[in-house]
């Protein structure tokens, strides 16, 4: 075979293989979404949002799990935003180039993709075992530990994008560095910071593993943060592995809800991010 033909054929095979890979990947993902929608949409009724979880064989919804998820993710995000934005600000504006700064950044990156179940173990040892009880607070802290690295990372990246001229202009008026950061730089980076928060929120709203031994779960509606609390992911886990058909159906509904929530948060974050870049 002459050289030119050989090159063309190799290239053709390669292009075909890449296309095939894309086809396989997309098929698998579409199949998953398809099952999720077909099995979940049927059970999506009003009582899912208004009634708490049923005993096997009776009617009920996921209200207690939804409320629990919102409460714990909410508290977790508050903690993560405070710590993450401050830490990201430190990396971008103050100590990012010091040795300590490099260590913090590296460990933040590691924490960013550390197995979430280990964070659950840590919070169990920290907040559950010493106080002899599972609690929603513990769950929220575990979620916060997972979201903080994301917020820190995006905060640092976004602040680094702000032009130095803006900092100099603020300082040239005699403002302190802290004041310039709070009243100018954070303002200029506002949408970026919100995006970081949304990304973190999307990540933790579907987390199951760290909640298993912190907030545990609760079959009743509960809004006391010092007690065990249900959450969508742990309830799905429990229902899906149960032997009851109606629980399994509810698990699909819950999975669909989580997927929709995570997708919409991510989409909003993307739209915001695009507007910042414009």
């Amino acid at each position: 075979m002459d050289r030119a033909l050989f090159r063309r054929v190799t290239n053709g095979i390669f292009v075909g293989a890449c296309g095939l890979a894309t086809l396989i990947a997309l098929t698998a993902l579409v199949l998953i979404l398809w099952s999720l929608i077909t099995k979940g949409i049927g059970g999506l009724e009003l009582k899912v949002f208004t009634e708490s979880q049923p005993a096997p064989g009776s009617e009920g919804g996921l209200a207690n799990a939804i409320v629990g998820s919102i409460l714990m993710c909410g508290l977790g995000m508050v903690i993560a935003l405070v710590v993450g934005i401050l830490a990201g600000t430190w990396l971008a504006e103050y100590g990012g180039q010091t040795t300590y700064g490099h260590v913090v950044r590296f460990l933040n990156d590691v924490l960013l993709s550390a197995p979430s179940i280990l964070v659950g173990l840590f919070v169990y040892e920290l907040l559950v075992a010493p106080f002899h009880g599972f609690s929603a607070y513990a769950g929220a802290v575990a979620l916060a530990i997972l979201a903080t690295p994301i917020v820190t990372r995006t905060t640092e990246d976004i602040l680094a994008l702000q032009p130095n001229a803006l900092r100099e202009a603020g300082m040239a008026l005699g403002a302190s560095r802290a004041f310039v950061i709070r009243s100018i730089i954070w303002k200029a980076a506002r949408t970026g910071l919100v995006t970081g928060g949304l990304l973190g929120f999307a990540r933790i709203s579907g987390e199951t593993a760290p909640l298993l031994f912190t907030s545990l779960g609760n079959q009743f509606m509960n809004t006391h943060m010092s007690q065990p609390m249900a959450s969508l992911p742990t309830t799905i886990f429990q229902f899906a592995l149960s032997a009851y058909d109606d629980w399994q159906r509810l698990a699909w509904v819950g999975a669909l809800l989580i997927a929709i929530a995570v997708l919409s948060i991510n989409i909003i974050g993307r739209i915001l991010a695009r507007e910042t870049h414009r």
Binding site: P163, L166, E168, A169, A172, L173, G174, I184, R190
Partner: peptide, 16 residues
């Protein structure tokens, strides 16, 4: 010092 010596930069730097 900076209150007494103000500065305007090459590119306009309006605050947000």
């Amino acid at each position: 010092l900076r209150a007494r010596v103000g500065m305007v930069f090459q590119k306009p730097t309006p605050f947000p």
